[in-house]
Simulated assay, not measured.
Amino acid sequence: MGKRYYCDYCDKSFADNPVNRKNHLRGVIHNKMRKLHYDSFRDPGTILAEDETKLPCKRFYNTGSCDYGDGCRFSHMTEEKRQELLKQIEEENKLAERKTQEDMEQKQLTLDDWLAKKCKTVSSVKVEEVPQFSLPQALRNIPNIPPSLLPPKFEDFQNTDPVEWG
């Protein structure tokens, strides 16, 4: 048995050869399923904006269904769905506004605060602020320990430039 191609969008597999794959990828069902997949990731504002440009589907509103489904060029948006999308948009806007306010509060450092932070030197570090390291018991009996395994001393912290991470 030869190789099989599995399409994640359609949940379908078939013999993998160029002709079969080309026919499948150009097929109506595949394109419809791919569109449904990507539409599930669209934001509510885009969905609502696209739907407002369409006219209402008479068949959908009269019978409750449409033969064309999501491929219909008319709108199938119900009032409940529209209200749900508007609510989601409003929540996203509130969240974004809250985030921008928090960012602005963080950015309102004065120039003096910034300069004070940048001008701090390591020489102002007190002995109490530097953690005290000691050699583990297992390494104490080993002669000529490499420098990378020796614990740092207070002097090592005094002679370094300040580094700001992040």
Rank of each mutant, 00 (worst) to 15 (best):
I89V: 05
T121H: 06
S65V: 00
K107Q: 10
I89C: 10
Q83R: 11
D67F: 13
K35C: 05
L85Q: 02
I142N: 13
M33N: 04
G45Y: 11
M77C: 01
L55M: 10
L109Q: 08
L111N: 09
S124Q: 14
N144L: 01
N93E: 12
D103K: 04
R82G: 01
D70R: 00
K118E: 13
C57F: 05
L109S: 04
K94H: 11
Q137A: 10
E80P: 00
P131Q: 09
A138Y: 10
T100Y: 03
E102V: 13
I142C: 09
E128V: 08
L109F: 12
E105D: 15
V125S: 02
K58V: 08
Q106D: 15
K117F: 15
T121A: 00
Q137I: 07
S40F: 07
K58N: 09
R73Q: 07
V127T: 11
V127W: 05
K117L: 14
Y38Q: 00
L55H: 07
Q137K: 12
E97K: 12
H76W: 02
M104C: 03
S124F: 06
A96D: 06
E90N: 13
N62G: 02
E129T: 10
F133M: 01
T110R: 00
E52F: 14
R59A: 12
K126V: 03
M33V: 04
P44M: 06
V122P: 00
D70C: 09
E80T: 07
G71P: 01
E128L: 03
V125G: 00
N31D: 11
